[in-house]
Design a binder for these strands. Structure first.
Lengths: 191, 191
DNA sequence: TTTCGAATTTACCATAGGGTAACTGTAGTG
DNA sequence: CACTACAGTTACCCTATGGTAAATTCGAAA
């Protein structure tokens, strides 16, 4: 599998440009991880100590509720993420991050990130990224507030077809806030 | 009605301390607004040009969907907010901000805020605030994904009783993602 | 205080989605 | 090749919530 730190630079540049010198400082603090399907990157109760860049692969964020795993988000490469609240407030996380497909990940430790945050352009990159995530979360919230499960399913089908091909019905159902049976019925109605 | 810029300083200090000199720079860029119940602070289609600090009062964020006003968030003083996506990306907003109770607001213009963002502690304040908002949004999303309307109502009743006393059933219902009739029925069952 | 419009409640029936369980298909393992 | 485990489907009935409409209460303006 190909892997390259530059994939992260390309990703950052979608938000904010870094000079070569700035990028060097970032690159020096990146460490690679190779994870297999089924691996757990972060587990409930741990304090999240890294920001991660997913170069290749597919991940799922989920929480436990009454013995059920509820999918909160999915992360499709390339993207940058962490367990925000845990990472920033240094608290145990409630989230679990599961590897759904073999993945290449680059990580930056908490202390290294603190140093990098002093670089204005890196700081701006992080802020813009958080704002984008906030926007995604709001969109999901809105669709849960005023769309039916079938409408939400159709929207994903149209807007994220790549994602649909890779996620299991079970995981998608918990993300949509319904049971796998209901989603199966909805699928049948549509086709 | 009492009003004081220092209320904003107190608010900022919950997230990050500013030196007296730093605070002066912020304070010099604050402009007061007095709004009445029913006023619209921001309307769909406008580009949001300010960050606002709500010193006193109560606001509602809502969007139009099929001729219906859907409540997205409520803001109870003291809090700092803007229409994030519109403000940061300089795009027309989809949100409307309505004044539910007479309010005292301090505003900072976009250009002034850009300058203030160069102050590291102010920058950190803003980032922490965005992260907090992200956390609130995620919590709302989660409760919409895996709680019934009645459970969501009970949670608000327990955790935000002050808020419950001030919001109308109609607005609360659209926030919970149900009709006013359903919320009325739920209330009846509980009492 | 009176009046009008809006907010809330109630009632009725319709529908989306849940709970349980049984069945089917399929991938991994010995 | 058989066995197992688990994902997905289907079916049954049930409950939460929606849609419509009408009755009632509340609140602001005259």
């Amino acid at each position: 599998m190909m892997m390259s730190k530059n994939a992260f630079r390309d990703f950052i540049h979608q938000y904010e440009k870094l000079t070569d010198a700035e990028w060097e400082m970032v690159a020096n603090r990146l460490h690679p991880l190779h994870l297999k399907k089924g691996d757990i990157l972060l587990k409930e109760g741990q304090i999240c100590n890294h920001i991660w860049f997913l170069e290749q692969g597919f991940l799922r964020f989920f929480i436990w509720k009454d013995g059920e795993a509820i999918s909160k988000f999915f992360t499709l490469a390339p993207y940058t993420f962490t367990s925000q609240r845990s990472f920033n407030l240094r608290q145990p996380t409630k989230e679990n991050i599961e590897v759904l497909e073999d993945s290449i990940i680059w990580e930056i430790g908490f202390d290294d990130n603190q140093k990098l945050m002093q670089i204005p352009s890196y700081n701006t990159f992080v802020r813009k990224l958080i704002q984008e995530v906030q926007h995604f979360t709001e969109q999901i919230m809105e669709s849960l507030q005023n769309k039916t499960a079938e409408e939400r399913y159709r929207v994903i089908l149209e807007k994220n077809p790549k994602f649909m091909q890779r996620v299991s019905l079970k995981h998608l159902a918990s993300f949509l806030g319904i049971t796998p049976q209901s989603l199966s019925r909805i699928r049948k109605n549509i086709h």
